[in-house]
Design a protein around this nucleic acid. Structure first.
Length: 479
RNA sequence: UCCUCCUUAGCUCAGUUGGUUAGAGCAUCUGACUGUUAAUCAGAGGGUCGUUGGUUCAAGUCCAACAGGGGGAGCCA
């Protein structure tokens, strides 16, 4: 019977009254041959287990090493020492699993995130990653809670897809064809008719197109699932496998879309603030310590908690691409030629440095940029009346960059077909997508939010590889 | 993929203008102590200096290539 254990988080909240309890967990430190700091993952706060001198044999004491797993039964008493309200006076201590101290790589000291990334299978046992993954869990739960409360239908869009028309990025191929002796057509090309699905298939880069199919019948839907991009991206904000949330709403325009995105972001941050306060406080302290190492100029003005509160309490800044270009063009930063890429002409895509200037220097809050030039955006985005811009929106977050990308979709069949032709999108392969416009089309809109970027923003972790349990990046798929 | 920096003990790092047996803190092991808080004190073990090749009487130190990692950029979420 293992389920009679009490979780340490729960135990630390009780009044110590000599009650007998059983806890299980891993040793964080063992001090003085007497005091075990025991952690079971329910909280970063350790339980102090006291093994009275002389009551336990040396054989047992020797086996209590960092990260050994224990079952401890004892009585809960007020702590004699400082630093904790209560402690567990042990009566029975059983080693569930030994841990060879000479081989175990984690020590009770600060480790670099780079080192911990190399032992990602064990990094859950650190305070930092314990906090990060409890916060990640809370955010994931809040995503479902938010949409459920709003009457959205959770839709499972396919992981394997035959459509590669969206052009959201390079795709991973899915095949059962042999690498040698690949079946060929007479012209030498690969004969996908022999493949598992009878055609070329890939891992999805977005559930949006299928999401639109569901939204144009069920009304409001969202997806929340893994997404794959085979880009050779080596940055602190890209993964080859990541999780994306994609709501899609029928009878909605760009403004509805931006409203939902802003409300959504504030909601899930607020949920984490209420339900993960201890973990966020810990992460805030961690971030503050890290920032102390940086030169004054690079430090952020607000701490993590302040930053999250600020985002929840203030309206996001909304402006069009055209207005943004104007601000950037007239900025002293641009006039003094401090940008690596100077802002001159309308129509060019914004560089990271420009986005960061807008978000971190000019407005100092999240920014919703709308109505981008059609030439730098996707075919499905709704054409504005000016004929030059489309009803797109990006949400830029301080320190993270683009956290949301979305748009009102082009619901007018003739306009959509024209755009697809211009952009060389094969309309015949997209017959099912076009059917939504053919049969009772409606204005609709949606967006994609990168879940890991959201977790980064909330936890203050600066590298995206530290907010997903087992990161997949170019040349890296260990564990 | 491009630019740039880094790679020395299990971890974090020092190592002068190239010059004998490569150092520190923490961790580990042994012993002492025992109400500790990343316990303390004493002692011990632990390194083909990322890999390969080159320059040199002599390379951790200089040069080149490769590998891995960090930071920045592009692609984006």
């Amino acid at each position: 019977m293992f389920n009679k254990r009490i979780k340490i988080k729960e135990l630390l909240a009780v009044e110590p009254q000599q009650q007998e309890v059983t806890v299980m967990g891993w040793v964080r430190t063992f001090r003085n041959n007497q005091f075990i700091a025991l952690n079971d993952g329910s909280t970063n706060n350790n339980l102090q287990v006291v093994m009275e001198l002389g009551k336990f044999g040396d054989d047992l004491l020797k086996r209590i090493t960092t990260s050994a797993s224990l079952k401890v039964t004892g009585t809960v008493v007020p702590s004699l020492g400082k630093g904790q309200k209560l402690e567990l006076k042990a009566t029975h201590v059983e080693i569930l699993g030994d841990c060879d101290a000479e081989k175990y790589p984690l020590q009770p000291k600060k480790h670099s995130l780079e080192f911990l990334r190399e032992i990602a299978h064990l990094r859950f046992r650190t305070n930092t990653f314990g906090s990060v993954f409890r916060v990640r869990n809370a955010l994931a739960f809040a995503v479902h809670k938010f949409f459920n409360e709003k009457g959205f239908v959770y839709m499972h869009t396919p992981i394997i897809t035959a459509s590669d028309a969206e052009g959201a990025g390079e795709m991973f191929k899915v095949t059962t064809l042999p690498f040698d002796n690949t079946p060929r057509n007479v012209d030498g090309s690969i004969n996908f008719k022999e493949d598992f699905f009878g055609r070329a298939t890939n891992l999805t880069v977005s559930g949006q197109l299928e999401g639109e199919l569901a939204a144009t019948a069920l009304g409001d839907i969202y997806t929340f699932g893994p997404t794959f991009r085979a880009e050779n991206s080596n940055t602190a904000r890209h993964l080859a496998e990541f999780w994306m949330i994609e709501p899609e709403m029928a009878f909605s325009d760009l403004e509805d879309n931006a409203n939902l995105a802003e409300e959504f972001i504030k909601y899930i941050i607020g949920y984490a603030m209420v339900h993960c306060r201890e973990d966020l406080d810990f992460l805030a302290q961690r971030l503050a310590d890290e920032e102390k190492q940086k030169p004054q100029l690079e430090r952020s003005e607000m701490g993590l908690i302040e930053r999250l509160e600020f985002v929840i309490q203030n309206d996001f800044e909304r402006l069009t691409y055209t207005e943004a270009i104007q601000i950037l063009k007239e900025s002293n930063h641009n006039k003094k030629k401090k940008f690596q890429y100077l802002v001159e002409d309308w129509g060019v895509d914004l560089q990271s440095e420009h986005e960061r200037y807008l978000v971190e220097k000019h407005f100092k809050k999240p920014v919703i940029l709308t109505d981008y030039p059609k030439d730098i955006k996707s075919f499905y985005m709704r054409m504005n009346d000016d004929g030059k811009t489309v009803a797109a929106m990006d949400i830029l977050a301080p320190g993270i960059g683009e956290i949301v990308g979305g748009s009102q979709r082009e619901e007018r069949m003739d306009v959509l077909e024209k755009r697809m032709k211009e952009m060389n999108i094969p309309a015949e392969e997209m017959w099912w997508y076009l059917d939504t416009r053919r049969f009772g089309t409606v204005p609709h809109a949606g967006f994609g939010l990168g879940f890991e970027r959201m977790v980064q923003f909330v936890t203050g972790m600066t590298n995206i590889r530290d907010v997903i349990p087992f990161p997949r990046t170019p040349k890296s798929a260990e564990f």
